[in-house]
Design a protein around this nucleic acid. Structure first.
Length: 934
RNA sequence: GGGCUGGUAGUUCAGCUGGUAUGAACGCUUGACUUGCACUCAAGAGGUCGGGGGUUCAAAUCCCCCCCAGUCCA
């Protein structure tokens, strides 16, 4: 979608007053505002080459600022100007269901604030938000720090309501200009404002980019539209969304060749020395850094073209450029990635193969490969992590608090990756050897993408391993799009359910919100209500209800309505659509008519059990966190009558000991009989009071949040029905655990009487086993062990005996049990095994006989009531003379109603008509004779 | 949430167009020869072919369900 806003949208009084001129850049074609009449291009050092970085070596500000200094300068500037300082939000956007990571400051206020559902924590406000952008991975390094996977976005936000204007475009630009010129001392005529259109996250509006000496240091967005199809629809709330690149501002204030030097300072030297980069030529970096603005790996896929251009502009030859630059870029990227990992893991992201955990894994593996590429001992990676914790731990205390867990999770991840690599290298070796044997000297693209897609082997690693085996690998330029193509097939959306849901939404329109009696009175089992509407002749809508609708992993209540003197309508399901509760009535039952007053009666046994399960779940969650660590988050839950489950994030399989400890802790929490308090808080207050740990169950909609506080054990935002106190649960028993995904463990447990019954079931099972084994319960393990051992021994004894028997029967004894005949120099041995149909025994015997004389063919057979079997084996000499066992069985087996086959030296067959066996044997005998007849 | 790959001896794997697991290598045990850099040679032990169901005369092999593990993408 390309759209331009009219020029007047950007013609601000500020520009006029301060003598800014609007110009069109001849290179990129964009309009920009500047006080410098001599300026021809917009000066932005992008791929259009409108300029280069002129701050490198010549700092743009009055003094150098470190990142924390710049952050403080920014925050205090806006604070001075009437903004309230707000603490940064987490980098894991758990309050949102559409994204995993916070990638801008505005993310903190979407959708509740920007859509007017909840008020902002302050208005206007200022925040410095650590933001993670993994789409910038390939650019991190090559662009000298213009792109980072983690950066701090300074956000000064104002939310303008129809009835309350805070400030809008003009004031926003004024603030920026004042910050840049007065707070930082950047000369006014060096600040350029570029007109631009901003579209993101379904919203849009005009924006201006702020360029200083070639670098975009900020974007001032005026969010005022919702994107609907191709159209922009005006929003009631106009949001000032400014993004100040705090890191970039620090960079221009220091004028270092790269942003990394500005942010990391001395720490970078330590990384260099770990990476074995002995001398870093700052003059060289300065020359290259000036032109780093035109590098953008996404837009111009071919990296080499970019390098060539940089080489042209700097006059440094390509080889030198590559050789000098690549290790440094990699060290930069490594430094950046470890910082991002520290932030992510400190908030409880567990590396895994799904969701945000996968992003952490991706990042770690990349960091690992960068370290390897720099010939760095992998242990140094953890030294860098330590440096990061030291560097950022003061301003972001959770990083310091989680230091141990971060390192542990990373080490675990390292182990897993090294296993994958080892496995993969073995696989490549075998593939290479196989190809070589077939005379193929190159690994196909198909194989290459499969190795990556299914086994996680990046092509460079395959190349390395294959070439060591003497098989070539050519990695196609478009490798990753080839992989993407493999995913293109079959993504069929099944959206039948949404249609039905939509019809309910329409049906409840205009109805008043149902009064939810189950919240203030979770123990009320009977109440009177008026039927407001019957929907789709199956759902009843009441004015007030005690029936809990399905949600938050808690199943719907059941029960019935009584009305009209003795009529009962059973409620089999309850759903909430919007703010209206729908009660599904059993199909066979009569529906009460609209306007009737009904008495609702809850299936209390069911509801009470579910309440126990729900409160119990909060206890298990709290117990798991205490036993396993602060990285534990709920990643899903389903309450049930028989058993309930809770999925938690954790980086390794739970041990039985850990499970026992969780169980004991949870039961201690029950015995402590702690009160369960539920309180509605305004969103901001809830977050301020309890932090983002509240969002255990994921995103919670609405302006007000229901907070469930279980004694001193656990606090969560939760919409379920809860007990008054924990003691009511009685007893909680963990039944089993499983691994749902890498990094997600599932605990299955039962509460109350269901828990007792579960224990009884397990006991019954044990007792049965004990009876079968005829052993006392307490010696069951030893007895089972011994029994299995004995069974194994018996089996191997049987095998041995079979062999011995075969050896005997193949010798002298053979004469007595088998018929032997000589046909043209081949000994034909025929034997009826009677009721023995175990081919294994026939095979053993036959091969013993043949071992003695290769010029032998055996025809063995047997039959029980139901099936007949025939087996033909021929020695090498017999085969040479023409015997073909396969052909014989194929011919003979159909006679007794079956089939069979095999090879020339061995074949077997079976059938279902044992009475025809003799006939088939005769046929087989004749066939052999025929084969041996010249 | 979607896709792909795998589960066979203690380990790494072969076998998978159904028809003997005489499986291979390494490891292990015993013996011989040597004692030096993966010693060599001989003999031997070691398998519910992840689990369950189905098709078939016959399933490691084909089909379905489940479990376990790996991996890519959003």
């Amino acid at each position: 979608m390309s759209k331009r806003f009219p020029a007047e949208d950007y013609a601000l009084p500020f520009f006029k007053q301060e003598g800014f001129i609007r110009k069109q850049c001849p290179k990129c074609g964009e309009y920009f505002w500047t006080q410098n009449a001599q300026m021809e291009t917009c000066g932005e050092a992008g791929s259009d080459e409108c300029g280069c970085y002129t701050f490198i070596g010549e700092p743009a500000a009055k003094k150098p600022f470190s990142l924390p200094e710049m952050r403080e300068a920014f925050l205090s500037f806006f604070e001075k100007n009437g903004h309230t300082r707000v603490k940064p939000y987490p980098v894991v956007a758990r309050w949102r269901s559409d994204i995993y990571l916070t990638h801008a400051s505005i993310i903190d206020f979407q959708p509740y604030v920007t859509e007017g559902i909840a008020p902002p924590p302050a208005n206007p406000l200022v925040i410095s938000q650590p933001s993670i952008r993994l789409t910038d991975i390939p650019n991190t390094g090559p662009t000298f720090g213009r792109h980072l996977t983690i950066f701090e976005m300074g956000g000064a936000h104002a939310f303008n309501y129809p009835d309350k204007e805070v400030y809008w475009k003009d004031q926003t630009v004024r603030y920026h200009h004042e910050f840049a010129t007065e707070a930082l001392g950047i000369p006014s005529e060096e600040v350029v404002y570029k007109e631009d259109v901003w579209i993101g996250g379904g919203n849009a509006g005009p924006d201006v980019e702020c360029i200083v000496r070639g670098l975009e240091v900020g974007t001032l967005v005026f969010m005022q539209y919702k994107v609907v199809g191709e159209e922009f629809v005006k929003l009631p709330i106009r949001t000032v969304d400014t993004g100040y690149g705090i890191d970039r501002f620090a960079w221009i204030s220091q004028g270092t060749p790269s942003l990394f030097q500005a942010i990391y300072g001395d720490m970078l030297d330590k990384v260099y020395s770990m990476a074995g980069i002995s001398k870093v030529d700052n003059q060289f970096l300065t020359r290259v850094g000036k032109y780093s603005g035109l590098v953008n790996v996404d837009k111009t896929a071919n990296r080499m073209v970019l390098r060539k251009r940089v080489s042209q502009l700097t006059g440094i030859d390509l080889t030198t450029l590559e050789k000098e630059l690549i290790p440094i870029e990699n060290a930069w990227a490594l430094t950046d990635h470890t910082k991002t990992l520290c932030f992510m893991l400190s908030e409880g992201v567990v590396p895994s193969n799904i969701q945000e955990g996968y992003l952490a894994r991706l990042l770690f593996r990349r960091a690992y490969r960068l370290a390897r590429g720099l010939n760095m001992d992998i242990d140094r990676l953890y030294d860098i992590v330590d440096l990061q914790v030291d560097k950022w731990g003061r301003d972001f205390p959770q990083i310091k608090a989680m230091h141990g867990e971060i390192v542990e999770m990373l080490k675990m991840e390292q182990e897993k990756f090294e296993d994958t690599l080892k496995r993969g290298e073995g696989m490549v070796k075998r593939i290479a050897a196989d190809l070589k044997a077939k005379g193929i000297s190159q690994i196909s693209n198909e194989t290459l993408s499969e190795l990556y897609d299914s086994h996680g082997l990046p092509p460079e690693i395959v190349k390395q391993a294959a070439e060591a085996e003497g098989v070539a690998v050519e990695v196609p330029e478009n490798f990753y799009s080839l992989v993407a193509n493999r995913h293109m097939q079959a993504n069929k959306p099944t959206e039948e359910d949404t249609v039905a849901e939509h019809s309910l939404e329409v049906a409840v329109q205009g109805l008043p919100p149902t009064e939810l009696v189950y919240y203030p009175e979770p123990y009320t089992r009977e109440w009177n209500a008026k039927v407001l509407k019957i929907v789709n002749s199956e759902y009843a809508v009441l004015d007030r209800t005690c029936f809990y609708p399905e949600g938050g992993g808690q199943p719907a209540d059941h029960g019935y309505f009584a009305y009209g003197g003795g009529v009962q309508a059973e409620v089999v399901d309850v759903q909430k659509v919007g703010r209206v509760v729908l009660h599904k009535i059993k199909t066979e039952n009569a529906l009460p008519s609209e306007g009737t007053t009904v008495k609702g009666i809850l299936d209390w046994e069911r509801r009470h059990a579910l309440m126990k399960a729900h409160t119990g779940t909060h206890l298990v969650n709290g117990a798991a966190r205490r036993v396993l660590g602060e990285h534990v988050w709920q990643s899903g839950t389903q309450k049930g009558l028989e058993s309930t489950r809770l999925d938690i994030s954790h980086y390794r399989r739970l041990t039985p000991e850990e499970v026992n400890r969780i169980e004991v802790l949870a039961n201690e929490a029950i015995l402590a009989n702690m009160p369960v308090e539920t309180t509605w808080f305004p969103r901001n207050e809830a977050e301020a009071r309890y932090g983002f740990r509240l969002y255990q169950g994921g995103a919670v909609p609405g302006k007000e949040i229901r907070v469930v506080k279980t004694g001193n054990w656990d606090v969560e935002a939760c919409a379920g029905t809860h007990l008054k106190s924990t003691g009511e649960i009685g007893y909680l028993k963990i039944l089993s655990t499983e691994r749902v995904q890498d990094g997600v463990e599932r605990l299955v447990y039962a509460v109350g009487i269901a828990a007792v019954k579960a224990v009884q079931r397990q006991e019954t099972l044990l007792r049965k086993v004990a009876e079968t084994l005829n052993a006392p319960l307490e010696k069951l393990d030893k007895t089972a062990e011994r029994t299995v051992k004995e069974l194994k021994e018996a089996n191997s004894e049987k095998k041995k005996l079979l062999k011995e028997l075969a050896a005997k029967e193949s010798g002298a004894l053979a004469e007595t049990v088998a018929e032997t005949e000589d046909v043209n120099g081949v000994k034909l041995v025929k034997r009826d095994f009677g009721e023995e149909t175990d081919v294994n025994r026939m095979v053993q015997t036959a091969s013993e006989i043949i071992k003695r004389n290769e010029a032998t063919a055996t025809v063995f057979y047997g039959a029980d009531q139901k099936t007949a079997r025939i087996m033909v084996m021929a020695g090498a000499e017999a085969v040479a003379k023409g015997v073909n066992a396969g052909a014989i069985v194929k011919l003979a087996a159909p006679i007794f109603g079956g089939g069979g086959g095999g090879r020339a030296n061995f074949a077997q067959g079976g059938g279902t008509k044992p009475d025809k066996l003799a006939e088939a044997v005769k046929a087989a005998e004749d066939a052999i004779k025929k084969q041996l007849t010249p």
